[in-house]
Design a protein around this nucleic acid. Structure first.
Lengths: 189, 189
DNA sequence: ATTTTAAAGTGACAAATGTCCTTCGACAGA
DNA sequence: TCTGTCGAAGGACATTTGTCACTTTAAAAT
């Protein structure tokens, strides 16, 4: 069976066995327990992570109110990191937490750049991923502005059915910008 | 006095007189009247625009409800375009409208690429602008999720005082995802 | 100057969502 | 088995925001 990372890359551009082996040799496996913080707020983030197994989320905590805002979830075959800190070498504004026991592949900033320079296909893969991320962010903002809580919720369930049954509803709520009580109410009516 | 576009570029990377002349030679001046649609929904977008004078906005209209969502405003020294259509050559999902008489500088997709290839500084300028745009979008989403109507409004006024006094409140409302009545209420209390 | 049109402000009421508090069931650890 | 924790659901009530209808003000057009 094809390596999950390879499958993910090849959805965008095909690579040879040698190329993939070379790419993979730059990644470091990481295993983490549920509740472990992969990234803490204020840290410098040196790697991006590809998820082999498990589930994580990145989030911000509002200092004043203590309320959380989930910026991103990631399960198998997703990338997760703190982009801003990773790219600019600034302190992380969001934390990343394991919602389950996780197995990840870490790629450092330097190796990331190196692979980009050496393999045009890898650079292309990254830039397509990044463009997709941008469009997804736009759509999410638009839904946030134009959609009701119900629309946002239904959109989430439809878009990520696996996550919906796997992640505590309270966290999905912070991703959608509502309270868990509101989510709860949406079932009944 | 320095050309506004040059000032804008040099805030990120210095260019020589010759380089700037060369860059500028790829732009086409455009003059438009208030209410003119620079881009219509469904069109192919061939250029990005730098604003010399006037004020515009890009927006989406929800088919079902007829409600508008302002995606972006642009006044002097801003870039505006329909990025997705511009980059991927797909039909525009947002329209762009002049809120005042406008003077713009248009740069086509091809010239944009050409300048990027020929002048590393220009490529750098574009990539920094794009990264800034991404971070701004993230912050806007975050505020949308964590902030009340008042917080979003006050943030807007603080961030764009010029726009606030220049643009109809009803449009600012659609940018913030509230009704104009809500904006109105915020003054009094 | 006069008329017309667009934008802003207001009040009353409705709907959506948040807050607080309690209950219930599932399940992991002692 | 018992107990404690966590996630989910629910009710009662408060607050925010939306909707609609109308008035006032300001700006454009003639």
């Amino acid at each position: 069976m094809m390596h999950p990372l390879r499958a993910h890359i090849e959805a965008i551009s095909k690579v040879t066995d040698e190329e993939f082996e070379y790419i993979l040799s730059h990644f470091t496996p990481v295993k983490l327990k549920k509740h472990h913080l992969l990234v803490r707020e204020g840290e410098l983030v040196k790697s991006e992570y590809f998820v082999l197994k498990g589930c994580l989320r990145s989030y911000i905590t509002d200092e004043k109110t203590g309320k959380e805002f989930t910026y991103q979830f990631a399960a198998e075959n997703w990338w997760i990191s703190e982009r801003e800190s990773f790219l600019k070498h600034t302190p992380a504004r969001t934390a990343i937490e394991c919602l389950e026991d996780c197995e990840l592949l870490a790629l450092t900033f330097e190796d990331n750049m190196k692979l980009g320079r050496e393999l045009w296909k890898f650079e292309h893969y990254k830039s397509v991923k990044s463009a997709h991320g941008y469009v997804a962010l736009q759509k999410r903002l638009q839904l946030m502005i134009m959609g009701s809580a119900r629309e946002r919720f239904e959109n989430f369930v439809q878009q990520y059915p696996q996550l919906y049954s796997r992640i505590p509803k309270a966290m999905i709520a912070t991703y959608l910008g509502v309270t868990r009580e509101t989510i709860s109410r949406l079932y009944r009516k």
